[in-house]
Design a binder for these strands. Structure first.
Lengths: 244, 244
DNA sequence: CCAAAAGTGTTCAAATTACACCCATGA
DNA sequence: TCATGGGTGTAATTTGAACACTTTTGG
């Protein structure tokens, strides 16, 4: 009970509070995640999620923003999607001391600069999935998995997918986001109708059309809408067995 | 960066880590929340969410379970639904010191014992909503609101509603859960078809039928199914403007 | 008998699916 | 002109909403 406890700041062994970031992007039609290579023990040489301490005068959200800017090299991250996933607090999750970590998921468009800025031994965008960079340091495999589950689910019932896109994008690019995250193909015709017909998801830009980079008819440009919740949701093709 | 920081445990002013619980139940067809009355400053005399410190050798989840058992008076809370909502870390959210709080939402069936056990000045089940017990202490209004939003949303696409019910329940009781949380009436006929037709949501119990406590045809008993995710979701009636 | 709740059946509208088909462009 | 992706049309199917109706109990 908070009521029955003393507020002696030094009564217990102190907790350190950190943030860990799962930063996702779509590159070459596949979901990628930003990882850093650890330069020192424990877990030296292994990949880990970027992160760092929450400073005494900032919130976890501020710390996450700060780290995101550092790692991506972007001056302004205020427009990026950054959301809390959950907090990891198992004793012993860091062998050095008691560390409670608040995990965040960030969604960024494919960045012009190929690599992450920063200070760690190395940083790289690596394709998400059961890959060569596992296992990650600490409990970061679990954190990364939880973050992925969150964004995969949120694509269905929010307009989150636009957070992966630049300010102006084509519906083909938006569809690639869904296909990359869900690992499933979507019918372009039906996808267009659904997205355009869902109020607040995207809005057309009156201006001209753009070429997708290669052949094909130039596609119209859209920008993200204002809707956060989608009713009805944009369901992904049956992920498991029959439901009825 | 974690890499570039020393692990001096006492380098910074320490963080305290607490848990706060939003414990919900359905009582008399309405959603209720368990609140405690603060006996001391700050916020003496105001209602607050139950909660307490995370001890040095336990996780936030363990602390939440411990608190839940204390507050509800139940010896075994392992079967209850308890999930993390998010973590609140604004500097200054507690005037006494730097407190980072991990918030949980708990769902319990209507308890035989009317009141919460425990130690605080007072504890009570109060109807959820804009009510006389506001504002809550600290940032608990916001925490409670976030917890409510979470469970309301999760009813749609998970089998969470059964967590409000006793081990064996009728479909009328389950429907009351949805109606109480969503604040909307559902068609009993269509609700039954949807729930029974969704694989893994509920399963029939071969045994006899039960009377609902009053008049009406005796209802069949069901128990919770094993499904966590619902495809397709159980949509609630349009909460806002038209979507297409 | 009447009210109330469980449970079944039926109907109509709306959404989803699976395509066929045309358009505009780069190679 | 051909391949490619954008965009529109449309019919078959499925799902969902609305509501009439029967069943079984308590009062």
């Amino acid at each position: 009970m908070r009521e029955s406890q003393e507020y002696d700041k030094y009564a217990h062994e102190p907790f350190a509070v950190t943030v860990d970031l799962a930063v996702f992007t779509i590159r070459d039609g596949a979901l990628h995640v930003l990882l850093v290579e650890r330069g020192q023990e424990p877990y030296a040489g292994q990949w880990a999620l970027p992160g760092g301490f929450v400073l005494p005068d900032e919130s976890a959200e501020s710390a996450a923003q700060r780290e995101l800017a550092e790692e991506t090299g972007l001056a302004d991250v205020s427009g990026l999607h950054l959301e809390q996933v959950r907090t990891y607090s198992d004793p012993g999750r860091d062998p050095r001391m008691r560390v409670v970590s608040v995990a965040f998921a960030a969604l960024v468009p494919d960045l012009p600069e190929a690599r992450a800025g920063g200070d760690a031994a190395g940083a790289a965008w690596l394709p998400y999935g059961p890959a060569a960079y596992r296992p990650l340091a600490f409990d970061h495999d679990r954190i990364l998995g939880d973050a992925y589950d969150r964004i995969r689910a949120k694509l269905e019932y929010t307009g989150l997918a636009t957070a992966f896109c630049p300010p102006e994008f084509t519906l083909g690019e938006l569809r690639q986001v869904y296909e990359a995250v869900w690992g499933a193909e979507l019918d372009p015709a039906n996808f267009r109708r659904k997205v355009v017909g869902t109020a607040g998801l995207v809005e057309a830009i009156p201006g001209a059309a753009r070429l997708t980079g290669g052949r094909g008819k130039p596609a119209a440009l859209f920008r993200a809408g204002t809707a956060t919740a989608l009713h009805p949701p944009l369901l992904r093709p049956t992920p498991e067995g029959p439901s009825s």
